[in-house]
């Protein structure tokens, strides 16, 4: 066991972890930040996406110890300071971009990273960016709509 320290959602934290402890397990088990989910064991599903030093990362692809000293942001840190939903979160609620909610934290974290790098993505760019985030409920339709809305773009869909 070694002590691992990092800043999570603006707060300094530290806890003991085995060398083999993944960042996602550290967040969920040691820090009890259970909003970040585990949906697979092959880094495919994206339910565990968090931001590490500003980059979207699948938290199952790195060890907790690798995040020593890092700035980590999770779904628990995405609401506005007053507790209201952030722009992306609100767009997901407004456009029914979630059903069971299990993939949702990863979707929101990926969407946030996308919109920071590409503030006005096209539908095709959003779909391509979300290759690494699997949703089984929504058929993606309303997730794409939510992200278009969060980017301030027109969400009238020709198909609808």
């Amino acid at each position: 066991m070694t002590q691992v320290s990092m800043t999570v959602n603006g707060k300094p934290v530290s806890a003991d972890a085995e060398g083999r402890t993944l960042l996602v397990d550290f967040l969920r088990n040691q820090l009890r930040l259970t909003g970040t989910h585990v949906g697979c064991d092959t880094s495919q599903c994206g339910a565990c996406v968090v931001h590490v030093n500003g980059q979207a990362v699948k938290a199952c692809t790195m060890f907790a110890a690798e995040a020593e000293g890092a700035e980590v942001r999770t779904i628990e840190g995405m609401a506005n300071d007053d507790g209201s939903l952030g722009v992306i979160q609100q767009a997901f609620q407004d456009h029914h971009g979630l059903q069971c909610g299990f993939c949702t934290p990863g979707m929101v974290m990926s969407a946030a990273a996308l919109l920071r790098d590409n503030p006005k993505p096209s539908e095709a760019e959003i779909r391509e960016y979300l290759e690494g985030n699997i949703c089984r409920c929504t058929g993606y339709h309303n997730i794409i709509k939510s992200i278009l809305a969060a980017s301030g773009q027109e969400v009238a869909i020709a198909a609808e």
Partner: peptide
């Protein structure tokens, strides 16, 4: 949605 979007869901 609010709890699911803020990480407060309890699975």
């Amino acid at each position: 949605d609010v709890r699911f979007l803020t990480g407060d869901g309890q699975y």
